[in-house]
Structures are given as C-alpha cells and as structure tokens.
Amino acid sequence: HNGKLCKLKGIAPLQLGKCNITGWLLGNPECDSLLPARSWSYIVETPNSENGACYPGDLIDYEELREQLSSVSSLERFEIFPKESSWPNHTFNGVTVSCSHRGKSSFYRNLLWLTKKGDSYPKLTNSYVNNKGKEVLVLWGVHHPSSSDEQQSLYSNGNAYVSVASSNYNRRFTPEIAARPKVRDQHGRMNYYWTLLEPGDTIIFEATGNLIAPWYAFALSRGFESGIITSNASMHECNTKCQTPQGAINSNLPFQNIHPVTIGECPKYVRSTKLRMVTGLRNIPSIQYRGLFGAIAGFIEGGWTGMIDGWYGYHHQNEQGSGYAADQKSTQNAINGITNKVNSVIEKMNTQFTAVGKEFNNLEKRMENLNKKVDDGFLDIWTYNAELLVLLENERTLDFHDLNVKNLYEKVKSQLKNNAKEIGNGCFEFYHKCDNECMESVRNGTYDYPKYSEESKLNREKIDGVKLESMGVYQILAIYSTVASSLVLLVSLGAISFWMCSNGSLQCRICI
C-alpha cells in the first residue's frame, strides 16, 4: 500500500475532517465546509473527530445509520420544511452556546429548535410527501429539559409530546424532565432520530412541544462500492481501485494482509504473511546465498510486491572476458508455465471484495464479540484455502523447474562428451581453451567436438587428477538461474548478450 488516501476510480472521497457522521448530518456549525458535499467514492472519518452533536445527546440507531450510509455515493440536500413558512405559530430561531460559531450562539444547520411564540405553543402538524424518486433521509430531535421551569419557559406545556409517523415508522416521544450533570454547559439533553422515507411515502410530524424540527433532508443515491473508513492518512493526487484505512492498494494479487476493511475492488484479506509461490528452483544453499535460486511470486499485497520470474541462460568467462545470454527457448517455456500457473491461482482465488467494518453500540458488546468470532472463522478458512492451494502448486513448480534445468544440462553434456569433466555440482571442467566463438557454439548447439578432442585428450593426460582450476583450465557451469522482474525479464530476452569482463582471468566458464 502507499499510505495515502486516493480517488477511487477517479472519484474523490468525502473527508469529514474534524467532524464525524453525526456532526455532518445534523449540521454542526463547525462542519459548515461539508454542506456543499454532493457525491463521493467513500467517506473518511478520523479516529478522534471532535465535532459531532454540539448540544449533548445521542443519535439513536447511529450504527444502523452508518451502515445505511456505507452504500450511499451521492445525496441532494434540500429544504424539507421551509423555515419561514412551515411554522407560522412558533418561534424557530432557537440557539445555544453549546453550538457556538465564530463566538456567537448558533444551532444545527439542518434542524430548527421550535419554541413557544408569545406565551403559547399551539399543537403543530406538518407533513412531507417524498417526490424525489429515491429514498429521503429525514432527521429530527426531541429536547429533554433539566427542570419543569425550563419546560414551561420554552414550550408552555408541561405534558408535551412529539409524534412522527410514516408508512414504515411510527413513534411517540415524551420529554424526560430530570436533573443531569452539566455537559457542554447544558443540564438538558437532546436525542436525535432518523428514518428513511421511501419514494411516494408521507411523513407526518405532530407536537405540542420539545420538537427539534427537520429543516433540511437528504435524497440518497446508492453506490455499492462506497463505504466509510476511519483513517488518519492524508489525501493525495492519486487514483486506485482499492482503498484501505492504511493506504491505497493497486494490485491484481488475490490476497492482502494490510487491513480487513477495504473499499472498492480489493484482494481478499488473509492473516498469512508467507503466502508465496515459487518460480525458481529448489533451494541450493551456495546459490541461494548469491540470490540466484528460489525466486518467488508473492500473492499477498503487503507481504511480497508483485511476481518475480526466474529465467535460464548461459554465463561464460574466458580470456576475452565474461558474458550472459538467455536461453530463449527454455526461458519462454518457463515463463509460459509460470504465467499459466499464476493465472490459474488468481482465477481460482481472485474475487474482488469490498469489506466494511460493522458498528455496534456499547450495549451490543456481546453481539460485536460474536460477530468478530464469526469473521475470524471465515478469515481462517480463507487463509487455509489460500495456503493449501499455493503449497500444492509450489511442489509442481519445483518439479517443473528441475526438468527444465536438467534438459539444459543434458544438452551441454551431450555436446562436450569427454572434452570436459562433470564435477558433480552442476559444473563441467573443460580440457581445452574455449574462446567466445567456442562458447557461442555450446550455447547454440553447434559445438565442434572433433575440433577440440585432441587438445582435450592431451590435457587429460597431463592433469592426472590435479585440480583443474589450479592448472588454468576452464570450467563450464551447467545450471544457472538469475532473477529478474517481469519487465526486466522481457528486456533481457530482447538482448543477445551483455558482457562482464574479468581482467586477466584465465578461467573459461559457460553457465546455464
């Protein structure tokens, strides 16, 4: 991952900044910058967002509201009850120091605090018919004063009620008058409520006091790749198909172990950190130390980045220098085999997901714990399936590479015959000098055995068991695999060879 928040398929997220979902939807004055928000790819909250409900109280069923919003990608904020005409018999300019803005008392931008007009609070009834052709999110509140005197001074009615009804919602609220500790300079409380109004449905408000009335509502448009994440990451000019709280993932790998919460087309989250597919040879310690064997393909974004291909070729060293050249036929066979294998694994496992966190309130801790156990169970199954699949494929890959290298080895052996000696570690020792032209003939299969047989015969008789390297004779190393990324691999195959001279070296080696 890149540690950044990015656009998702070209669409920017909605960053709530210092506000949370509650503050944004109710219209906390400190969240005025969010009022123009219309569309987004996903919503970003920060872990310690401080601006929620400015007048103390709870947004009821907040967790369910977050779940609903996680599939919303755009909205239209509109005046559901026009301020100047909807409440002619009531005062609608209630403000509070708890919702101060720029040093002055204020109130929510989407709600109206209705109080008595003169000395009376006549029963009010108002309704709205949803003609938007889509779901409408309606929010309101109920004020709970701290004393009967406060109730009387604001609403005149000691036994007030609030009723809200639609086809799918029907509740009646009565204020709970009680002494409470002071929070944000208030002994009173406000509880906030919401409902989704279906197209064509009607919502009716009736009250004799204590109503925090809707002013603006939201017509919602769903987008199934949307979601809500909690993150401290910063926004950058970048684009992605998959976003996590820790950063964007741009990967076609089937798995990731970065974060379980994802938005967009994302690899499946697994616990494993070692889900690797081999593309090189079986481990040979001396070669492995030099980083030549054991190439791997990573299938977990965050564990290993991208696929690494092994390729086969020849390396030689003689009086004229040293050089490398790919054996294109065996390399292409290996590439085709690995590509098919990788595609097979991805096809089997690479279903892209959006995974969002589930919200539970403080009273639902047991449910949250149960949900976590269920999620953990599914996660263990996914991890096991992934590891088992790759384990089985790896064994076949190792066998496949062994065969490829063996074929190259036999190709060289059949040409050199007794003009060189096998020394048991995949290397041959020449009994004759071999210049670049000679080396090329070994690589392309045109090695002239009779041409060098007499010199080889004489050297075999002279050496008589002495280690060949100390006599200045020449080696050919018969097994060799270097490691390159897919891009470098293609470039390498396009070149005939490249040279690395070893000044004054008397050794001649050709490596497979």
Rank of each mutant, 00 (worst) to 15 (best):
N232P: 10
N232V: 15
N232T: 14
M235N: 01
T240K: 03
K241S: 14
A248K: 00
L253A: 09
Q256G: 02
I258L: 10
P267A: 15
P267R: 01
P267T: 01
Y269Q: 05
V270P: 06
R271W: 04
S272N: 04
T273P: 11
K274M: 11
M277H: 01
V278L: 03
V278R: 00
G280T: 07
L281Q: 06
I284V: 02
Q288W: 04
Y289W: 09
L292T: 04
F293Y: 07
F293N: 05
G294Q: 03
A295L: 08
F299D: 04
I300N: 01
E301W: 05
E301A: 06
G303H: 03
G306E: 13
H316Q: 06
H316E: 00
Q317I: 14
N318G: 03
E319I: 05
N333H: 14
A334D: 04
A334S: 07
K341V: 01
I346W: 02
I346V: 15
E347P: 01
K348D: 00
M349R: 04
M349A: 09
M349K: 04
N369S: 14
L370Q: 07
V374H: 03
D376Y: 07
D376S: 10
D380E: 14
A386W: 08
L388C: 06
E395C: 03
N404Q: 15
N404D: 05
K406H: 11
L408S: 03
E410K: 03
K413S: 08
N419K: 14
G426E: 07
F430W: 06
F430T: 07
N436V: 13
E440C: 07
S441V: 03
N444S: 13
T446D: 12
Y447P: 12
Y447R: 04
K457W: 10
L458R: 10
K462G: 14
I463N: 11
L468A: 09
M471H: 11
V473I: 13
V473A: 12
Y474M: 11
Q475V: 13
I476G: 12
Y480P: 12
S481G: 12
L487D: 00
V488K: 00
A495Y: 12
S502R: 06
C511Y: 09
I512E: 04
